[in-house]
Design a protein around this nucleic acid. Structure first.
Lengths: 151, 151
DNA sequence: TATTGTTATACTCTATAACTATA
DNA sequence: TATAGTTATAGAGTATAACAATA
């Protein structure tokens, strides 16, 4: 079915988006809201860190958080140490929905990959790890036109 | 850095989205337009087939094609055999930009994965292949609540 | 009747630029 | 001055429902 390695990667990317969309729809969340909630299940996160994790401009994130707050899923709290900053945390309802979304994504991906031998899973995990490390930092804000030289 | 396999898959999926965004930006395309153009580089495709490939409602696709058409990147042609249907094809400008986007995505992904041993690349490719086969068909339109039984 | 695609409508998502408040 | 976040604005993306044209 799939021919080249890069084609496989592209399709996998689409699949992951689709999974977030499908899972989000079950909880009446947009894919973006589902991703946001999944990021917050481990505890409060600041706006700046969220922009990096979601690859969004800060104003885009403001809107995303606004809508999630309006739906009663998250809350802003001022950071006591830096009064410019704020932390985004899940409300009780956000915790509930976020956990369902998080587990839903994990369950779907587990179901899809459950037949892979554990050895392969570990191998692939570390391989992906290396890929991710390679792209770290080279995101939009830096107009870096040397994609082939990691130096 | 990455702990679980599913987490790795999710991050890899986000990376692919990011690559489409970065590449698209260079050609002044939105990520969605970049994906559309990449799908059309092999030849004209009908609307219905595009909705499946992009996982969009038909009305959403109408808008996406409208905007791409307004930018002179694609053109609609009526299907002679079925006069309800139409085929979407790239304009000369769309061919140029689409090829740049397509090659840009491939180049970035190749650069990121170039250091992986060929054996791992093949393993990852076939693993993704299996994953994709598993999810095929079970998309939004069918409210199928049995994710574990491929029957 | 069913299918292909569009239109109307209402949100959501996103970026750029300008701004406020704090560091 | 620099950083954290918001506001204003404009455009793009998306889904639902109703529709037209063709099969």
């Amino acid at each position: 079915m799939v021919t080249t390695f890069t084609t496989a990667l592209v399709r996998l990317g689409h699949l992951v988006q689709q999974v977030f969309g499908d899972v989000g729809r079950e909880q009446d969340l947009t894919p973006q809201q589902a991703q946001l909630l999944c990021l917050l299940v481990d505890g409060p996160v600041g706006m700046t860190e969220l922009t990096r994790a979601l690859h969004l401009e800060k104003s885009s994130l403001t809107g995303l958080v606004d809508r999630a707050e309006r739906r009663g899923l998250v809350a802003r709290t001022r950071d006591a140490r830096d009064r410019r900053a704020c932390l985004i945390e899940l409300t009780p309802e956000g915790e509930r929905v976020g956990a369902l979304a998080h587990d839903g994504v994990a369950a779907r991906l587990e179901a899809l990959t459950g037949e892979l031998p554990e050895v392969h899973r570990e191998l692939l995990t570390s391989a992906i790890d290396g890929i991710l490390t390679g792209y770290a930092g080279r995101t939009r804000p830096q107009p870096d036109r040397t994609p082939a030289s990691p130096a």
